[in-house]
Design a protein around this nucleic acid. Structure first.
Lengths: 337, 337
DNA sequence: CTGAAAGCGCTTACAG
DNA sequence: CTGAAAGCGCTTACAG
C-alpha cells in the first residue's frame, strides 16, 4: 500500500499539485481557486485518506512541529506528571514531544540540546538545573523559542512559568495561625536559589503581618549535601531542643531525605500533636496521613501555560509582559474532613 | 548564523556534494575516493561544525530515526521508569523517542498510532492495553516494526519482552516456605490475562512440588471493578475467616487499591506476624516496611532488550526465535538485614 | 577515482 | 482563477 501524495490527488482531480496544496492548506480563497475545484479536492483527499508527509513539510518550511522537552529525569514523578500534561496539550495543538533527561549533568544537558538542535526541533521546554544557563543563552542566540518551567534564571531574559512560592508559603503559615498554632518551625535547605528565598520570605512575612513575631531560631536550614539520616537526626533534635514548637512547615520536598527507613524515622521524631504543613507533595510526606496539609503545586497549569507560551513564542505573538508567569498553589488538607 | 550544508563543504573542498556525502557516510572506500580527499573533507566538516539535516535525510531515505513509545500513562512510575531507560538506550543508538499515552482508551490509542504513522515514525514500542490488538495488527500489516513490553497478545505474532511470571511467583512462594511459612494466602484479581494465570500457576506449582498441598480456599480473587474500600474489606475478612494464614502473597499491584486511606487500612488489616510478599513494587506496598519481600520486575532490562529487539527488527536482523523474551524477576527483602 | 543529475514530497513566489 | 518551476538538503544510481 503506497502512500498517497499530493501529486496523486492532483492527477486524479485533473489539477496541478500546487492547487491541491493551496486548497488543503486553506488558501483556496486567497489564491482564488473556484469553490467547486476546492470542494472536489477536499472530498478526494478525504476519500483517499491523504495525510501530508510531515517530513517533506518540515524540510520545505523549516518547521518540524517537534518540541524538545528537557527535564532532569523523566522517571521522576514530578517531571513525568509534567510530561503527561504537556503531551496532552501539545498533541492537541499539532505538536509532538521528544523528551530527554539531563540527570543533572551539565555536560549531558549540553550534548542533548546540541543534538535536538540538529534534529530540527522547533522549540524547547526546559526545567533547567543550575548549570544550564549558558546552554539556554546559546539556544536563545540561535533564535529558538524556549520556555523554562518550575525554575528560572533571574539573569536570563527568557519566558518562564513558576509557582507563587512566596504566596504559597504565606497561605500555609496563615492556615496554621488560624488553627491556633503560632510556634511554627520552618525547615528548609541551604540552597541559594530564588525559590527558597521567596519561600522563607513568605514564612517571615506571614508571621510578622499577623502580629506574631518571626523567631529566627525556629528556622532550620539543612545542608543539602548531608545524608538522609543526618538530616532526620537534625530535625529530631531541633524539635526536642525547642519544645515550644507546635507545628512544622517543610519548605520543600527536596530535603535529601529518601528511603523508607529515613522517612519512617522522620515520622517518629515528630510528635503526633505537632501539625505538619509541607510545600509540595512527595514520598517523604506520604506517611503523614491523614491530617497533613499540603501546599500543592499546580503541575497541570504549569504544563499547559508553558506550552501556550511556547507556541506563542514560536508564532512570534509573545509579548515581553507575558514572560513571567506565576501560578498559585492550592492548600490541601489530606484525609481530614 | 546559517547552517552549513553538504554543498558548502563541497564548495570549500572543491569537490562535488556527492563526494562529501559519500565520505561523511563512510562510503569513501566503497566509492574509491582517494584517502587524501576523504581526510580533507572530514577535517573540513569537523572544523565547520557540519551536522547533517536529519529532516532531509529522512525525506530522502524514508527513515526518520524516531521511535514511537506508546504507554498507558507516562505519568505512572512504571512507565516513566521504562521511558527513562528506553531514552538512554535509544539515544545512544541514534534514535529519538516520541511518547504518548493511551490512557487505556482504545480510541485514543488508535488515533495516536495513526498520527505517529503519518509523522513518519520508524518503529513502535508499546505496552498494549487489552483493546489495542487490532491496531497492532494494522501496524504489522503496514510493515512497521513493533515490540510489545510487559504485556502481550498470544494470538499476534509480534516480538515481546515480558517477565517470568510463573518463575517469579514460584521463587517468592518457595522463599516463604523456606522461612517456615506454609499457609500462604494468594491474593489476585479476576482478570483473564495470561500473566495472571501464569502467576497463579506459579503459586500452585511451588506448593505442590514442595510437598505442601495447594489449598484452593486460600486463594482470593478480587473483582477488578470494585472500589478500593470493598477490596480492602474483602481482604480483611478473608484473613479473619482463615486464621491459619501465616503469610500473604499479592499477585499484582493492580489490585485497584489506591488512595492512602485504603492503603493504611489494608496495612492495619494484616496482622504484623503475617509475612507479606508481593509481585512488583508499588504505592500499595510502600507502607509495609521493613521486612516486606518484593518480587521485583527488571524494568531496565525490559527496556533495553525491547529497544534492541526493535532495532534488530528495523534492520531486518530479528529472527523468529528471538520473538519471545522472558526476563527474570529479583527477590528483594526490603529493609531487613 | 569523481561529478552531474534525479528525486524524496512538499510550499510558494512567479508567470500567465 | 490555475499551472510550471524552483528549491528545502540530502542520497544514490548512473555515467564517465
Amino acid at each position: 500500500m503506497k502512500r498517497v501524495s499530493i501529486k496523486d490527488i492532483a492527477k486524479q482531480a485533473g489539477v496541478a499539485p500546487s492547487t491541491v496544496s493551496f486548497v488543503l492548506n486553506g488558501k483556496a480563497k486567497e489564491m482564488r481557486i473556484s469553490d467547486k475545484v476546492a470542494e472536489d479536492i477536499k472530498a478526494l483527499a478525504k476519500e483517499i485518506g491523504y495525510y501530508p508527509n510531515q517530513t517533506a513539510v518540515s524540510l520545505r518550511t523549516g518547521k518540524s512541529k517537534i518540541i524538545g522537552l528537557i527535564v532532569e529525569d523523566i522517571s521522576n514523578v514530578f517531571f513525568a506528571t509534567l510530561a503527561k500534561y504537556i503531551e496532552d496539550k501539545a498533541y492537541s495543538l499539532g505538536y509532538r514531544i521528544v523528551y530527554c533527561s539531563t540527570e543533572n549533568d551539565d555536560e549531558k544537558g549540553n550534548e542533548l540540546i546540541k543534538m535536538l538542535l540538529h534534529q530540527q526541533v522547533d522549540a524547547f521546554l526546559i526545567t533547567p538545573s543550575k548549570g544550564m544557563d549558558k546552554q539556554i543563552t546559546e539556544l536563545l542566540k540561535r533564535g529558538k523559542p524556549v520556555v523554562l518551567m518550575d525554575r528560572f534564571f533571574p539573569d536570563i531574559n527568557v519566558p518562564y512559568v513558576i509557582v507563587q512560592n512566596f504566596r504559597g508559603v504565606k497561605t500555609g503559615i496563615e492556615h496554621l495561625l488560624q488553627k491556633g498554632y503560632s510556634k511554627i518551625a520552618f525547615i528548609t535547605v541551604d540552597l541559594d536559589q530564588i525559590q527558597m528565598h521567596q519561600r522563607e520570605k513568605g514564612y517571615r512575612d506571614a508571621l510578622n503581618t499577623s502580629g506574631f513575631n518571626y523567631a529566627e531560631k525556629l528556622t532550620l536550614k539543612l545542608s543539602f549535601k548531608q545524608s538522609a539520616e543526618a538530616s532526620v537526626m537534625q530535625i529530631a533534635s531541633f524539635i526536642k531542643e525547642n519544645p515550644e514548637i507546635d507545628s512544622v512547615f517543610f519548605a520543600t520536598n527536596y530535603l535529601g531525605i529518601f528511603g523508607l527507613e529515613s522517612i519512617k524515622l522522620l515520622e517518629l521524631s515528630i510528635p503526633k500533636d505537632i501539625a505538619v504543613v509541607c510545600f509540595d507533595d512527595h514520598d517523604i510526606f506520604r506517611l503523614y496521613t491523614p491530617g497533613i496539609t499540603i501546599i500543592q503545586q499546580p503541575i497541570e497549569e504549569i504544563a499547559k501555560t508553558s506550552i501556550e507560551l511556547l507556541i506563542k513564542s514560536i508564532t512570534g505573538e509573545l509579548a515581553a509582559e507575558e514572560y513571567r508567569v506565576f501560578k498559585d498553589t492550592t492548600l490541601v488538607i489530606r484525609g481530614s474532613t
